[in-house]
Amino acid sequence: MPTIPFEVFRGSPGQTRFDTFSLDIPEHTPILTALLKIRDEIDPTLTLRYSCRQAICGSCAMRINGKSRLACLTPVGPEFRARGKLRIEPMANQPVLRDLVVDQGPFWQRYHSIRPYLVPDPQHPLPVGKESPMTPEQVAQFQETPRCIACASCYSACPAIASDGDFLGPMALAKLFRFVVDPRDGAFHERLLGVQNQSLWLCLRCNLCVESCPKDVRPAERIHDLKWMANQELGALERGSRHAIKFASNIREGGLLNEMKLARETLGLVGMLGQIPKGIELARHGKSIRKHPPIQGREELDAIYRELDRPEDLQHRPRVPGQGVKGPTQQPSKAGGAA
């Protein structure tokens, strides 16, 4: 292993720089260990959050070559080899305090905003002196979310958080899911109603949270589950859910998407008025949106809908199984990447 130069973000807002520290260390050394070595042996003024060094306290999330990762869980070698450098920056989407330490206030605020505690259900009080009953199906709902260590890697990776302060973010919504599926909780309806505003539907399904989560909580998939539950419980209350529901009925008609009709149904007539200038512009470039002719075998599609678009199928949303446990960090298939 060659000497590895660590390019580390330093300083406070207004006065920032990158310092390069070179270390001779084995490839499998976790990046946290390397940073602590820098602190102990080269520059004691480097500051960062850390504690357990075993991926359970959630303190040491940061950006490593742009990816949001736990430093304790990410070995030096593969990251260095993939990009020929190791650039260490504080998490994104949170104000930097100093060096690798960010202000997590907004992250925690979002967490607290979902009422992260059991709300008693007056209809079904908890049994006195013994545990609450739980079926294996109910227990199975807790497959992923209890693994969350609130490290905020997902929050740092999320492009929706970066662009819209209304979004609750992957962690808070995954936490919400944990309460929504809890049979001991009495606020199922209210909880869904609370996010069936734009927040739930601002998730982009980009799955960056899924890749950055060190505990394989798969937040995007939990958000997807919440969207589905919200549709079932509350119906099409606003644009996001209306779009999802209308999309399904839209393609049933001709097999391909009728873009004009979907826009009308999602946005409403008033919303459509706002689209007129864009429509004219598109038409000028030959991009007019017409209705596709129906596909051949449209009746087959219709048969699928008749068979599967029924309430009993909607009751049943099996999990797409995840890895269970996140293995070693992805090893890029080959060096290079972008220039």
């Binding site: 997807h224 399904a248 097999g255 998407l257 087959e300 599609l301 909607l314």
Partner: peptide, 24 residues
């Protein structure tokens, strides 16, 4: 005979349906 893939939106209302459309 190919139909729309559902674009991620059908999945938001009915996963089984979405899978079936694409299995076809």
């Amino acid at each position: 005979t190919f139909s729309c893939c559902g674009s991620g939106f059908v999945d938001e209302s009915n996963l089984t349906l979405n899978v079936a459309i694409n299995a076809r």
